[in-house]
Design a protein around this nucleic acid. Structure first.
Length: 520
RNA sequence: GGUGCUAUCGUCUAGUGGCCUAGGACAACGGCCUCUCACGCCGUAAACCCCGGUUCGAGUCCGGGUAGCACUACCA
């Protein structure tokens, strides 16, 4: 019987959602959508000591910003979860886990262990490579070595204990991975994992994960490669519960690596190399720190999605730009790479550039306006006639400059001169382009421009070029000097585009003013 | 140490035995365009980890090395 595809993203609220986690969520989402299935979000908060306030809300907001829709569980519309398999926060599922822990205990697949953390630590110090397993459990303090009444007595008087999974040695366990094929390991190297800890009355990841995936009818577990070594344990758990026939299929994704050197991409790498590793800015109240986010750094969510999608997955063709719809159509698990991908931040910028130039001038102008107003406000120039005049032509200005930036915020450093006449002049440009004849030529140009009625680019070009030809001046010399007067440096778009935005009055005003400043 | 996974330009990758003289993209470099700076266009440089084997033929299949990574918690 074909089951409806159901996948889950199950983060732990221990801090901001890491960019690698975002990619895992994305691949789950793409797989779900492509197969007409459900995408669930479950919060795995079984480690009460690592809980970070605000982390859960952060995860929800990040996924929402990126357009990764959640069909069931914790989501924007239903912060406490929606769907028939709730609650979706593991800390609220204690009673459910009790039932299954008991089932394992009763069937002999698990046992009580009373060894304290300190004792275990001591044991690890004494015995190198100590592992709690079939070979060692006979020498430990647990329900396998203690008389039944002693076990009962300890539990009744409130001794702290854990429940461990009893792994039977001498068996090969095979996990079929959708990306890597069959992975087989011997059960001897597995240890008797802790499934439940009485100290906080919560299961560990392994137990909670299997129980929830089963109860929530998850069909495909798509998660990071760091889980591959414990996948055989999970298979054993499914077997112990007798759920093998509905066990989900596994797909372990390659890791996101540091851009330089080796190893997993970490928060530290972002700080060190100057790029965000989180989708959104995160204020960690526990640590009192703030971490940068892609959203606040000026990335479009589409760009982040596109960038992430291609970090570990690629179609057979040469296409690089994909909308979410295209990704849903084209994505496939068997085209996911097996090896880790170094995080190439430079390419991320390029993706943002691609999406930026694809946006309308009006939309970009709307995003750019607050930045312009803030910058001008800081300088006390917001109310000037020149600034207001340019502000009215924001879409035109943005259209002129968007090709040359990766982020909306970068527009300011490229287009600042439209809003205020230059007061200072770029030294290099002046040195190279401002000649001895320039002051005289600019004075003449001012007269020519003054008498030009038709201020259109075509007309200006004809008039000025005609004048240059007549006087036998060098086109480059005149135009560059003119540019320096209007912009303050040898940069910017075509000169007639600049005069067009500035208008006749402002153009002439700048010409005279700059002339004065430059010949002083 | 043990176990597992992985291995193509600096980076992301295409490649599923002959279409490979190894393709694309980012970054780099050079040129063209041009009043400047960009964009764009054109181009250059740049890789099959090593050794065996299978085969008429191997980047592609197999074995062995080597290297990198992950896991090895009462964390997920």
């Amino acid at each position: 019987m074909e089951r409806k595809v159901r996948v889950r993203f199950a983060p732990s609220p221990t801090g901001a959602l890491h960019i690698g986690g975002v990619r895992t969520a994305l691949y789950n989402y793409l797989f779900a959508r492509q197969n007409g299935g459900d995408m669930l979000l479950r919060i795995e908060d079984t480690d009460s000591t690592r809980f970070v306030p605000g982390a859960e809300a952060y995860i929800i907001e990040a996924l929402d910003w990126l357009g990764i829709g959640i069909d069931e569980g914790i989501c924007k519309e239903a912060p406490n979860g929606k769907g028939p398999h709730g609650p979706y926060r593991q800390s609220e599922r204690r009673e459910i886990y009790h039932v299954y822990v008991k089932q394992l205990l009763d069937s002999g697949h698990a046992y009580y262990a009373f060894d304290t953390p300190e004792e275990l630590e001591q044991k690890r110090k004494e015995v190198s490579n100590f592992q709690y397993d079939a070979h060692t459990r006979g020498g430990m303090v647990n329900s396998l070595t203690l008389p039944a009444e002693e076990v009962r007595a300890r539990i009744e008087r409130g001794d702290k204990y854990v429940v461990r999974f009893k792994i039977e040695p001498g068996e090969n366990v095979t996990v079929h991975d959708l990306i890597r094929g069959d992975v087989t390991i011997g059960s001897d190297i597995l240890d008797d994992k802790v499934l439940y800890k009485s100290a906080d009355d919560l299961p560990t990841y392994h137990l909670a994960n299997i129980v929830d995936d089963h109860l929530m009818e998850v069909t495909h577990v798509i998660r990071g490669e760091e889980w591959l070594p414990s996948a055989p344990l999970h298979v054993l758990l499914y077997r112990a519960f007798g759920w093998e026939d509905t066990m989900p299929q596994f797909a372990h994704l390659p890791l996101l690596l540091k851009p330089d050197g080796n190893g997993k991409l970490s928060k530290r790498d972002g700080d060190r190399l100057g790029f965000p590793v989180f989708p959104l800015e995160f204020h960690n109240e526990k640590e009192g720190t703030v971490s940068r986010g892609y959203r606040e750094d000026g990335y479009f969510p589409e760009a982040v999605i596109n960038f992430l999608a291609l970090l570990g997955w690629h179609s057979s063709g040469d296409q690089e730009i994909y909308s979410m719809e295209e990704l849903i159509r084209e994505f496939s698990l068997d085209r996911v790479s097996k090896s880790g991908a170094k995080f190439d931040y430079e390419k991320g910028k390029w993706f943002n550039h691609q999406y930026l130039i694809g946006k309308s001038d009006e939309e970009l102008a709307g995003l750019f306006r607050p930045i312009v107003e803030e910058r001008l406000g800081e300088k006390g120039l917001l109310e000037t006639a020149a600034a207001q005049h340019a502000l009215q032509q924001l879409p035109t200005i943005v259209g002129l400059m968007k090709e040359r930036v990766n982020f909306v915020s970068e527009l300011w450093e490229q287009a600042d001169f439209f809003f205020a006449a230059p007061k200072e002049f770029d030294e290099k440009s002046v040195q190279k382009r401002w000649k001895a004849d320039s002051p005289r030529q600019m004075e003449e140009l001012a007269v020519v421009l003054e008498s030009t009625e038709d201020w259109s680019a075509g007309s200006l070009d004809k008039v000025v070029m005609g004048w240059i030809a007549e006087k036998e001046y060098g086109v480059g010399i005149v135009m560059n000097a003119f540019r320096i007067c209007l912009v303050g440096a040898a940069r910017g778009p075509h000169i007639w585009n600049i005069t067009d935005v500035l208008g006749k009055e402002e153009t002439l005003r700048r010409l005279h003013q700059s002339l004065t400043l430059l010949t002083r």
